[in-house]
Amino acid sequence: MREVQNVLEVKNLKKHFPIKGGVLKRTQGYVKAVDDISFAVKENETFSLVGESGCGKSTTGRAILRLHEPTEGEVLFKGDNLLDVGKRSFRLMRKDMQLIFQDPFSSLNPRMTVKKLLMEPLLTHKLATKKEAEQKAANMIEKVGLSKEQLDCYPHEFSGGQRQRISIARALIVNPKLVILDEAVSALDVSIQSQILNLLIKLQQEFHLTYIFISHDLNVVKHLSDRVGVMYLGQMMELATTDKLYENPLHPYTQALLSAIPSIDPKEKKERVILQGDVPDPSDPPTGCPFQLRCPMAHERCAEEKPRFIEKEEDHWVACHLYEE
């Protein structure tokens, strides 16, 4: 059945944040930031999670890395459940899974030189002696398009795009298998963004990396991904190969999301689906389908019953009553 091995399998992952209130800080309820999602990421592919702010895509990324301890579920990394591993030994496994952040201004310690920043992951995992680490840092910085002379500079001497290159170098220097990119190019200017995307693609091929790309930018996701999962209010609404998702979106939410992207071709006048209302409060989600309050196709059943996540056609999963027999 499997031709390509799954690097990562996420099964029924849940992350609920308690809402505390009152003088005694008692738990008054839960924000279900990630509510029962499952997906698998194949070796050497780019799997993207898209959705609007608050849909749980970033929390999913952080829950996989246990930066937020998941409430429930399984995260299988090459067959081992990461959530069963003790904290201390998990720290050692972290070298195989790296995270790159959105904000190139706050993701690097301002008091460390680039050289120190690049050497730290190597020395933390004792992957190299100091000398070797220095050599590796020098190699890596050239791989991401900066020069050796810049090793002694501090982060504030670089522009946003250059800092993102440093973050990438720092993540890749330990030879990870999986890299989670959390809105990694969202803060960059258009002209810089494409440089970084090209770099990411080049490095993926060179180092045989598997990417989980988390983004709200559907254009960027389309360019980069092999498969895409669409999230809404902590749940997976649709999951398909990139071509299938963009050419034949099944879920009404995906359809609306795609039609909301401003066009850049003056000749293309597309029919817009403008959604009404806002994303509901995640601490008080609607019953049934999470999207039913804004869905143009909603019917009675949507309010009563949560749709199952089914494989409508090959490699194309969707959670919507319209497609349930």
Partner: peptide, 20 residues
């Protein structure tokens, strides 16, 4: 060009070299 080439998966993205 850099925005338009985003739609084209097979192609390398057009990018303006250097920094602002």
């Amino acid at each position: 060009s850099s925005i338009r080439s985003l739609g084209n998966k097979s192609e390398e993205l057009y990018s303006i070299p250097g920094n602002v």
